[in-house]
Design a protein around this nucleic acid. Structure first.
Lengths: 234, 234
DNA sequence: ACCTGAACACCGTTCAAGT
DNA sequence: ACCTGAACACCGTTCAAGT
């Protein structure tokens, strides 16, 4: 009550009824307002709330209550921001089965977890495909776990990477496919595409993206099992 | 020579030495300058010459010697233009093997042709995944041929579409992967990722994208053969 | 080093005015 | 119907000026 600390005029109090959205002195703040962690976190929240089209540098800066140009003291470009996001998303992928399960079981679990993560982040997929992993610690850790697990399961190192890249291509393609509208294969006139039209009727109401992913995943693992050096396959 | 038609002052002739880059009366031309065909053709040429980043509505209009706003009399949006491009690229994919070869051989050939086409058009991949095929005649024809071929080869219609979608996901993911830099898996410090580092050394100099694609394609086809209802597989 | 504020060079798209 | 020209509402990014 009678204390003399500086809480009688907190920054939220307006001097009168006029709205004063923010006030900060012009120069460098004594403690930095931004960091990679804070920027990434705000970007994830923004995407979660309003989707990828809403992720603009201006909107992100607004979320962080900062001028847009302030972001460029921490990240070189929007492209680099997307790389941070990629690493954040990869952190959520579960590759732990490679520690406990046979390589083929682990591969299936990893693929499902990987696809699940990117179905919600499909706009990152084109970024992933072209981005060297070196600067992304969680991404490196994930691949190391997967490749080490495959090698422990009997795969030669060079071939293990082929398996990983092939599976990743399928997973990322499937993640993009999962964002498609359900009626993507609908055809207007049945005469021009009778097989497609019949198939469309048979498939109506199914979750086609999931079914195709599971079919492809099973085929891929079956095929790799057949190729595995010490395997029971052909 | 002595004819009285309107060719004595063609549009290319400048009245004096001053450069006059273009001259056209303001109103509607007697014969339309643009069409879907001409716009698509110019876009393909522009992409071929200067790449996808150069494909802007302004640059495309310039190529066609037209004001940017003129394009919008023919195409509703840049997105729709990309759909036209998708259909054009799909026209170049060879699915003819389904007419003459067993389904598994045809599937492999189609997949290679499909990937080849989109390696040069990777920026279209995210568009494809989300675009209904109905408005794209060549795309519909391609899928119809593939699904009909699979059905003729003994696949039930609904399952045939799963096979197609799974293979397509793999192909499009692989096309994006093929645009990645060769050193995408390089890791700076070997201690943190020893398996990855060893694999990187073994793979240096190889065409890794091609190897991974062929490995995945072979596995996928092997797996589908094993699942085929009338097949010799398990 | 790290912020603000004011620019810059684009981008896709719209629309009135012309024929 | 189909073009031009002039706008509009963005976008990512740069940079001098401040502390």
């Amino acid at each position: 009550m009678s204390c003399v600390t500086n809480d009688e005029v907190p920054t939220q109090v307006a001097t009168d009824s006029a709205p004063r959205p923010r006030a900060r002195r012009r120069g460098r703040p004594s403690v930095p307002l931004l960091s990679q962690k804070r920027i990434t976190r705000a970007a994830v929240e923004l995407i979660g709330a309003r989707g990828y089209p809403a992720l603009t540098m201006a909107a992100l800066a607004r979320e962080l209550r900062v001028a847009p140009s302030a972001l460029y003291n921490h990240v070189a470009s929007k492209r680099d921001l997307l790389r941070w996001l990629q690493d954040h998303v990869n952190r959520g992928i579960d590759a732990s089965a490679f520690d406990t399960e046979p390589w083929d079981v682990a591969l299936e679990r990893w693929a499902r977890s990987y696809r699940d993560a990117y179905v919600r982040h499909a706009p990152l997929v084109p970024v992933i495909a072209v981005t060297p992993i070196a600067g992304s610690p969680h991404t490196v850790a994930m691949y190391e776990g997967v490749v080490a697990g495959l090698c422990a399961g009997g795969w030669p190192e060079a071939e293990a990477v082929d398996v990983v890249v092939a599976l990743e291509s399928f997973v990322l393609g499937s993640a993009m496919d999962a964002t498609a509208p359900a009626d993507i294969f609908d055809v207007p006139d049945d005469a021009a595409a009778p097989a497609l039209a019949r198939a469309g009727l048979l498939r109506a109401g199914r979750d086609n993206a999931d079914a195709a992913f599971e079919a492809g995943l099973a085929a891929l693992v079956t095929g790799f099992r057949a190729r595995h050096p010490g395997g029971a396959g052909g």
